[in-house]
């Protein structure tokens, strides 16, 4: 697609655009976290960008990445409904200081996306008015979509029942209670 959006971003932010790429028509710009908010505002307000539609805000965890570079990639996808172009901007956030500016007041839909990223990855968004967990519960310790969180480690809110009184599932193949109906005999049906 056109490189218009990437060119506009480069002209506006210069060296703060760390790298750009284009994969099968999808433009990606990796930005310095310092200009994250300004870039979102620029994409929305600039006449030639005109990205008026928020698509997605989420995060990817690269646990093997050097943390001084930033382990988490927070990305924002925006789209222009009348110019028909889309761009994805990324900011690298480190585990040691997982903070980024909020864009929830620029793109209102991003507000819940930021809550989800906070919930799942523990990235804090500075300036977010209501940064709470959105999917998990408040008592949950840790951030489940980080790759170093064990995927099967549950933190039950209700204590599990002990199995001293009733047998708990799963049952073995020969256990349980079969529902045995008499074998169907066609002769029993009057035709």
């Amino acid at each position: 697609m056109s490189k218009l959006l990437l060119d506009r971003l480069k002209a506006q932010f210069g060296d703060s655009v760390l790298e750009t790429s284009n994969f099968r028509g999808d433009d990606v710009a990796v930005l310095d976290p310092k200009v994250w908010r300004a870039a979102a505002e620029f994409l929305r307000d600039d006449n030639r960008c005109g990205c008026d539609y928020f698509v997605d805000l989420s995060c990817v965890d690269y646990p093997d990445e050097d943390d001084t570079k930033g382990r988490f990639d927070v990305y924002l996808i925006v789209y222009s409904t009348h110019k028909k172009h889309r761009v994805r901007i990324k900011a690298r956030v480190s585990e040691a200081n997982p903070e980024l500016d909020t864009v929830g007041d620029i793109y209102l839909g991003a507000s819940w996306g930021e809550r989800e990223v906070f919930d799942m990855f523990g990235v804090r968004f500075k300036g977010h008015p209501d940064l709470r967990r959105i999917l998990m519960y408040e008592e949950f310790v840790g951030y489940p979509l980080r790759k170093d969180y064990p995927a099967t480690k549950a933190q039950p809110l209700v204590e599990y029942r002990d199995n001293t009184h009733d047998k708990l599932g799963p049952f073995l193949a020969d256990e349980g209670m079969p529902f045995n109906r008499a074998p169907v005999d066609p002769k029993n049906f009057a035709s």
């Binding site: 489940p144 969180y149 995927a151 480690k153 933190q155 599990y160 029942r161």
Partner: peptide
């Protein structure tokens, strides 16, 4: 089989 799902409601109620 993950952190978010109850592995069977019999863990909670009979």
């Amino acid at each position: 089989d993950n952190y978010a799902t109850v592995p069977g409601i019999d863990k909670i109620i009979p």
